[in-house]
Design a protein around this nucleic acid. Sequence first.
DNA 1: AAATATCTTAGAACCATTCTAAGATATTGA
DNA 2: TCAATATCTTAGAATGGTTCTAAGATATTT
Lengths: 140, 140
Amino acid sequence: MNNERPYAEALSRLRTASLRPTRQRLALCKLLFDAGDRHVTAEALHSEALAADVRVSLATIYNTLHQFTEAGLLREVVVESGKTYFDTNTSDHHHFYVEDECRLVDIDGGQVKVQGLPDAPAGAEISRVDVVVRVRSAGD
Amino acid sequence: MNNERPYAEALSRLRTASLRPTRQRLALCKLLFDAGDRHVTAEALHSEALAADVRVSLATIYNTLHQFTEAGLLREVVVESGKTYFDTNTSDHHHFYVEDECRLVDIDGGQVKVQGLPDAPAGAEISRVDVVVRVRSAGD
DNA sequence: AAATATCTTAGAACCATTCTAAGATATTGA
DNA sequence: TCAATATCTTAGAATGGTTCTAAGATATTT
């Protein structure tokens, strides 16, 4: 977006999250948000960082992903036990989950309507409605 | 249901699954299916079995839960990473997930309609649509 | 620049789950 | 009924993703 100040956007993201702009967080910001909507696991982001010569520990990857999630910069998506995906798309939307590729695909939230849900259990209030459409590649 | 042949139902369940009626599987069948709709984790079922004086290893609990799932007697529900629930209700339905209690509540599938889903990604076909309504107990 | 607050890190710890391979149990077929 | 075969159960080790620890590094505030 801005070739002269490549970290301006990352910097402002960290400011809104009240997180100090460290080398690691700035680099992860760029990796996460410069490439459009993404669904990453901690391990995948770690590999990507190392491949891009960003020296960062796995612990920091986890810390950062959770801090970003708490700040509303990321959304956590659970579709399979033992694997956590972080989604850079935080708008109202849903997911296809391609089971045999362990891959997520966004479904725009605007066009999807979930009708007929009963009231939440007594004393509880809805925090989110997640629709996961599990699909299998027919080819296999 | 039948007080004189307490294992008759368990036995027929195992037959339909082509699984040998062992002491462990019969007992787990009873624990799982005699009490109406349930959502159990492997650990929880293990504790329950031990409490009921059913000597069974955790490995067998896992084996059995997976075999039952493959046979269509159970359904696996993923709502939180690192925790797998097995649901004795295998009919078309959805779930409330009470986040602060890690508890699932069934939502009857008949009355819920998910409209406006786009086509599955090229070459893929839908295997299931899961709706998870995350709720928080307002009290806390 | 000193004092303070926050961050990063390697490696250990953790926990749910799966694996291993050896003995036990169920089934089959004479 | 009994041996032969197939399947099952098990304790304990192994695995894999994630979190914890506590010590040194970096950023911020004064």
